[in-house]
Amino acid sequence: AEDTGLRVELAEEDDCSNSSLALRLWVEDPKKLKGKHKDNEAIEFSFNLETDTPEEVAFEMVKSGFFHESDSKAVAKSIRDRVTLIKKTREKKPAGC
């Protein structure tokens, strides 16, 4: 959240059994967002490492009214950063997480 003001974390333990993850996103630093958004609300969603893209999820969140169009890049970046970290963790610990 240090640069986007958004925080993304695993909503459930990653058992590495499949490509689907449960993630949770919320606004940690409202001052860093440009458009209207709902404070104090966490948005939980599933993310498939093989088929989903952070941009697509961000677009759906903007369409659903969670964030303003001007923040979709920040939302996508926050999701991308977390997914990249999870992929690296999975590569390091192939024996399950």
Partner: peptide
């Protein structure tokens, strides 16, 4: 619970719930 709201968009499900106080950074 009444505090949780489910939103569907293009086949994706978003579950909205309050962020626990402990997780909110003091702004």
């Amino acid at each position: 619970s009444s505090l949780t709201q489910v939103v569907h968009s293009a086949g994706r499900r978003f579950i909205v719930s309050p962020v626990p106080e402990s997780r909110l950074r003091e702004s």
